[in-house]
């Protein structure tokens, strides 16, 4: 059926699918007149930004290079105007020979939640209603004697100072699974795994059925229950189309390994802010990378390994003699 065609295996020089595009063009023309009027009326009346061009936009994976280029330019203009600053939206693709991996040293994490808030600021998450991609769970060391059970974790801890006596902390965000249950269940193909291992969402394509949220074993996916709200002065103008562009109401979002940073070679925001250096990030295909050193020399584990989702987010105990 109409599943996005696997363009990676498509033969070079193969003609573009004419039936698909002409059919869409026809639909576009026909529907613009009819449905446009019906759909636009209430949307405009309710004051949300709406334009036909974005309404009939194709799935990100099916956009041609030219269409993607036009989209990027349009969004840059739109958000520069909206937020009154020089916003640059990019669609920079994956680098060859890169598979991202993340390591987190739970012997170091102090539960200070700086990563949570740096992530919110970097990725333009809604401030009210609050959306946070990283959740830091606090565990009792004594309870961990019978193994780590996530249900013992408490994300709502409040202390004057951390780490609290006898506690340890596990920050959890998207695990960027190789066999991601979320992308498997998505009915519209609005979420998928990129060649560099980042699981992304096409926010313009998501219909908000939240099946992926039911499927995700890590609670990593978050829904825009109301119109997201980020003050213009707090907007991060360095944006990526399938990363931190402002989201719309009624779509799902989640960690993208800071795709707008990492694809340019930079560290993710949570990595940069961590005051204790508990976060490690790099290319799993590069034997010299930090993450490969961790894999080789430390004992790593992944969350809910029994589900065989093959996460690319590894937890490890980095410090000898520290308990």
């Amino acid at each position: 059926m109409g599943t996005p065609r696997n363009r990676r295996v498509k033969q070079a020089g193969e003609a573009p699918e004419p039936s698909g595009s002409s059919r869409r063009d026809f639909i576009k023309t026909a529907a613009t007149v009819g449905a446009g009027a019906i759909v636009a009326a209430p949307a405009v009346a309710s004051g949300f930004d709406f334009d036909l061009e974005s309404f009939f936009q194709k799935n990100f994976r099916e956009l041609s290079e030219e269409e993607l280029d036009a989209l990027v330019k349009r969004l840059s203009r739109k958000y520069s105007k909206k937020y009154g600053k020089d916003v640059s939206v990019s669609a920079i693709g994956p680098m060859d020979g890169v598979l991202y991996g993340y390591g987190l040293d739970i012997s170091r994490c102090t539960g200070c939640r700086r990563c949570v808030h740096a992530c919110v600021e970097e990725n333009n998450q809604s401030r009210d209603p609050e959306i946070q991609w990283i959740r830091v769970l606090e565990f009792e060391r004594s309870e961990a004697l019978r193994g780590i059970d996530l249900k013992d974790g408490n994300p709502y801890y409040e202390h004057k100072e951390v780490p609290d006596e006898g506690k340890f902390y596990i920050p959890i965000a998207c695990q960027h699974c190789e066999d991601s249950p979320c992308s498997k269940v998505c009915p519209t193909g609005a979420t998928w795994r990129e060649p560099d291992g980042i699981v992304v969402i096409d926010y313009d394509w998501c219909i908000g059925c939240r099946y992926c949220m039911a499927a995700c074993p890590y609670g990593a996916r978050h829904f825009n229950w109301a119109e997201p709200n980020v003050p213009a002065e707090d907007i991060n103008p360095d944006m990526h189309v399938i990363g931190n562009v402002p989201r719309k109401r009624g779509v799902v979002e989640k960690c993208t390994f800071c795709i707008q940073r990492t694809r340019k070679g930079r560290y993710p925001a949570c990595h940069e802010i961590c005051p204790v250096g508990a976060r490690k990030f790099g290319n799993l295909l590069d034997p010299e990378s930090e993450i490969r050193y961790v894999m080789k020399h430390k004992r790593t584990f992944v969350l809910k390994a029994e589900l065989e989702t093959k996460p690319k987010f590894f937890y490890f105990w980095g410090t000898e003699g520290r308990s």
Partner: peptide
Amino acid sequence: LGRPEFVWHLMPGFGTPNFPHS
């Protein structure tokens, strides 16, 4: 649905239904 106006995204021909996986 969060965005019912986009249900056409899962109709064959119009959208990209993730069939047979979903």
